[in-house]
Amino acid sequence: MKKQMSDSLTLAVFLTLAGGFQDAYSYNCRGQVFANAQTGNIVLLGQNLATGHPGRALHYLFPLLAFMLGVYLAELVCRRYQNSTRIHWRQTILLAEIVLLVIAGLLPQSLSVAANVLLSFACAMQVNAFRKFRGLPCATTMCIGNMRSAASLLCGYHTTGDPELKRKSMHYYFVIAVFAVGAAIGAVLTQRIGERAIWIAAGLQLIGFLLMFAHEPDPVHID
C-alpha cells in the first residue's frame, strides 16, 4: 500500500479551504448556524433559551448533537478499519463527507435545519479524522486551537531563539490564513450561487481524497 498523504501540508490546504468554506456557507445560507464553530452554536443556543425562543434554539441544538455523533462515528470507523489495506480509513471519511455535502446542497431553504445537521456531522468527522499535519496537531475546521499553538510557539521562539519553533508557528499561521481564504471564498460564492455552493467544498474534499492515493511528498517548510 502506498504511503498516504494524510499528514501532508498539501492535503491540509484543501481540507482547510473546505472547512472555512463550510462555516461561511452555513452561516450565510443556512440561518446563521455554524457548521464547524460549535462554541458559537452553544452560545446562540443558550441565548435563545434565555430570551424565550426555544424553537429557534433547536436550530443550534440539532447541529451540536450531529457534531458529537459525527465524532463518534469517525472514531468508530478508525477503530474498525485503521488496518485496512484496500483504502485508507480517512479516505472513507472523506467520501462520506462528500456525499453529505452533496445532499446538503440539494436541500431547499425550508430544510436548512436538516442541511446544518448534515454539515455539522460531516465537519465533525473531518476534525476527528485529520488531527495532524507534518507531525503537528492541527485542525482544518476551526481556528482556536491553531491560534493558541501559533502564539505559544512564537513566544517560545522569541524566548529561546530556536528556529524550529518559528517554523512550526508559521505552519499554524499559514493554516489559519488558508481557513480565512476558504471562508471568504465561501461567503462570496454562496451569495452568488446559493444552496448548491456547498458543492465547491465537496469538490475540494474530493481533491483531498484523490491526493491520498499518491505518495507523500517531501516536507514543505514555511519560514
Results as ranks from 00 to 15, higher is better:
98 I>A: 05
115 A>M: 05
127 V>T: 14
163 P>S: 08
148 R>K: 13
184 A>W: 10
11 L>R: 05
19 G>A: 06
30 R>C: 03
61 L>M: 10
3 K>S: 14
69 L>Q: 04
221 H>R: 14
153 L>H: 06
109 Q>G: 15
101 L>K: 03
222 I>K: 03
102 V>W: 10
167 R>F: 08
125 M>T: 03
107 L>A: 07
6 S>G: 07
193 I>Y: 08
156 G>R: 03
165 L>A: 09
84 S>A: 12
102 V>R: 05
5 M>Q: 15
37 A>F: 10
117 V>Q: 02
222 I>L: 15
157 Y>S: 01
112 S>I: 01
7 D>F: 07
28 N>P: 04
94 L>E: 10
55 G>D: 11
78 C>Q: 15
26 S>P: 02
134 R>I: 08
97 E>T: 07
184 A>F: 14
219 P>T: 08
214 A>H: 11
166 K>M: 13
182 G>D: 06
65 L>Q: 00
94 L>P: 01
173 Y>Q: 06
132 K>V: 10
15 L>T: 04
99 V>I: 15
158 H>W: 14
220 V>R: 09
168 K>E: 13
145 G>H: 05
71 V>Q: 07
169 S>N: 05
60 Y>M: 03
115 A>Q: 03
70 G>F: 00
71 V>G: 07
112 S>F: 11
198 I>S: 00
6 S>F: 12
205 Q>D: 09
130 F>K: 04
26 S>K: 00
82 Q>E: 15
161 G>A: 07
134 R>N: 15
116 N>C: 09
65 L>M: 10
215 H>N: 15
216 E>K: 12
150 A>D: 00
41 N>G: 02
58 L>F: 13
20 G>P: 05
159 T>R: 12
23 D>V: 08
56 R>M: 12
158 H>Q: 14
212 M>C: 09
199 W>A: 04
208 G>L: 04
145 G>M: 05
110 S>G: 15
62 F>C: 06
143 C>N: 10
141 T>I: 12
42 I>G: 01
142 M>Q: 04
88 H>S: 07
145 G>C: 06
48 N>P: 06
195 E>M: 13
51 T>W: 11
38 Q>M: 14
195 E>D: 14
70 G>K: 00
158 H>C: 12
97 E>Y: 02
139 A>P: 03
159 T>N: 09
153 L>T: 00
219 P>K: 07
12 A>Q: 04
120 S>I: 00
85 T>D: 14
212 M>I: 02
109 Q>D: 15
194 G>A: 08
155 C>Y: 14
39 T>E: 06
161 G>I: 02
164 E>K: 12
175 V>I: 15
165 L>H: 11
2 K>Y: 11
40 G>R: 04
15 L>F: 11
210 L>W: 10
119 L>C: 10
200 I>H: 03
202 A>Y: 03
108 P>E: 03
209 F>P: 00
78 C>E: 15
56 R>N: 12
188 V>A: 13
135 G>H: 09
70 G>E: 00
2 K>H: 13
80 R>H: 12
202 A>I: 02
37 A>C: 10
5 M>S: 09
